[in-house]
């Protein structure tokens, strides 16, 4: 099994609901986003085109971050999800500069001492921050904790109001993601870097 995601760029409306859902699911501190939606604009007025590009960890089959990690903190599960072991990461950030998608985030020391309302943390932040460590690198986990509990969708997929994100098994030719990739010609970002990402974009 290889879990992956298909992102339909024609459907994405740039509402950032996925960004917020991800933050709520993972309880990340201010400024830390495992996923977000970027604006991409081309042309000059009046001939302008704009599209929204959701970005996240691509959980590459041939992940450069896993290769360069000196401690083995970055590792891959059997279902293709690339994870960071918080207790092994030393915060060298070799993975940060190796990731072509620039989707790794370094939590500076002291980052978890403040929440959205300064030093006084909300009950939610007090409950969620112990799941993180400062001084290490974090990234999207494809909601591995939800998958382990038997759920079939990541938080961003479940929240997307436009059905622009679809999650599933890329190894199953009959899964929705595989059928979409086949029928709509899904393409991988920066495929020239030979990373074989598990996130496909549909134009």
């Amino acid at each position: 099994m290889r879990l992956g995601m298909v992102i339909d760029l024609k459907r994405c409306v740039g509402c950032q609901a996925c960004t917020v859902a991800c933050k709520a699911e993972n309880g990340t501190s201010p400024g830390i986003m495992y996923t977000k939606v970027l604006d991409q604009v081309s042309g000059t007025y009046p001939n302008v085109r704009k599209q929204f590009v959701p970005v996240l960890c691509n959980h590459c089959r041939n992940a450069p971050c896993e290769r360069v990690c000196p401690t083995g903190a970055t590792h891959k599960r059997e279902d293709g999800i690339v994870l960071v072991d918080h207790d092994k990461c030393i915060g060298c950030r070799a993975c940060y500069v190796a990731c072509p998608y620039n989707n790794r985030i370094f939590l500076k020391r002291g980052k978890l001492k403040e929440g959205y309302y300064g030093k006084k943390m909300t009950p939610y932040e007090r409950a969620k921050y112990p799941e993180h460590q400062d001084g290490i690198v974090e990234k999207c986990k494809f909601c591995s904790h939800r998958i382990d509990e038997g759920l079939t969708e990541t938080s961003c997929v479940q929240t997307c109001p436009a059905d622009a994100r679809i999650f599933g098994n890329l190894d199953d030719p009959e899964s929705k993601v595989s059928r979409l990739i086949r029928s709509r010609g899904g393409r991988q970002a920066l495929c020239e870097d030979d990373t074989d990402p598990s996130v496909y974009y549909l134009d």
Partner: peptide, 15 residues
């Protein structure tokens, strides 16, 4: 000085 978790530096020898 650069490492986020300097006390774990020895782990960097493992791969």
């Amino acid at each position: 000085l650069y490492l986020g978790r300097p006390l774990r530096f020895w782990r960097a020898m493992s791969r």
